[in-house]
Design a protein around this nucleic acid. Structure first.
Lengths: 206, 206
DNA sequence: GTCTATAGGTGGATAGAC
DNA sequence: GTCTATCCACCTATAGAC
């Protein structure tokens, strides 16, 4: 069992994932190479293959880490947010922080390349979307029964619409290099759900 | 000046575009190669380069043809549709026919790869989105002033939301290999705009 | 764990014959 | 317009030394 490192930074495999994640979010899984990651970290591609024997292994690890990280973020929201509308605002803020770095959602990008991905990555991808849809559906359901949100269709259907709309808004906004475009769409999508004002909370009106 | 062909099928360059278009919509611009197109058409890659000297040329031609084709489809809708709600239904049907063939919108796919595309393709891409947003905004504006549609924000903002939501719904639905997923989302998005019942028109209610 | 060196394949693109 | 042959760059991946 290796001793915990006392002074060094993140383990090499984590730094590999960090760089690869950014490259995939910006250029796609078919648009980046081991060579790029290696040169950026000043290591050889052979070292990369030591940590991730195949590109498929690296890709799956990327999705699984992203999934776990997103899952923790959703737990944090559940713990900290005040009400369903606030949960949705914080959820949208997760996307906003992504496009601010000139990236797409990792899984939104991979969804475009879906047909060319190896099967293990395809499965990990839908698992990520499932997580998002389940969480959104639960928030929407609670928000409606509590009176904070208003929509006509089922929470599950509305969750799918919301997920797709946020992914698509990022996709188009990034082509214009205009993150405000995304923010405007996200804010309006939340307003459509009757999630209240987005900038400052107001005391009960009327 | 070449004589018009009397008996042959579409010109070679058109058949190249047909195959390349399908491959890009399914696998992305970085996910297909001249070799694949050539073997499918039983010609050599050198012939491909005769018609489209570089892959950038081919990519730009793909977007421009797609743009022109879409523009004609929108003209047809303007001519044939009965009212704004019907126009939106027919617009969504364009997307539906795409995902039914296991494809993404050509420009939705390219938007994901945006950062890796040559500049001429990037410009052609935003021109396509501009066309869609202008058309949608005009339909939304007319529909609201005529009472057929109802939404709170500006027609331009709502057009952007709708375009992004349709692109995103396709993106996610295709990862599940489930075109019904897209259709459900599209129908609900139209209902949100107060575009009335989607299956059969009804006589004035109440 | 990291390296050098390299294998083996595929990418886009070109030359020149026909 | 289409072909064969070829170039060179890049890709993923491996072997084996350190």
């Amino acid at each position: 069992m290796p001793r915990p490192k006392l002074q060094s930074g993140p383990a090499t495999s984590e730094r590999i994932l960090d760089v690869a994640e950014r490259l995939v979010q910006q250029q796609g899984f078919n648009g980046f190479s081991y060579a790029t990651v290696a040169s950026e970290l000043h290591i050889s591609t052979a070292s990369l293959h030591y940590h991730f024997p195949s590109k498929t292994d690296l890709g799956r690890a990327l999705i699984e880490r992203y999934h776990a990280s997103f899952s923790r973020a959703l737990d944090d929201i559940d713990r900290d947010a005040r009400g369903a509308a606030d949960k949705l605002r914080r959820y949208a803020a997760l996307y906003d922080s992504v496009i601010k770095n000139d990236r797409l959602c990792l899984c939104g990008m991979l969804a475009a390349e879906f047909a060319t991905l190896p099967a293990p990555m395809q499965q990990a991808l839908t698992a990520f979307f499932d997580l998002n849809e389940r969480w959104l559906a639960a928030v929407l359901k609670d928000g409606r029964s509590g009176g904070a949100l208003d929509f006509r269709d089922s929470p599950a259907d509305r969750a799918r619409i919301l997920l797709g709309a946020l992914e698509g808004a990022m996709l188009v906004a990034r082509s214009y290099g205009d993150e405000k475009r995304f923010r405007a769409a996200a804010n309006q999508l939340l307003e459509d759900l009757g999630s209240g004002p987005r900038v400052k909370p107001r005391r009960a009106s009327k």
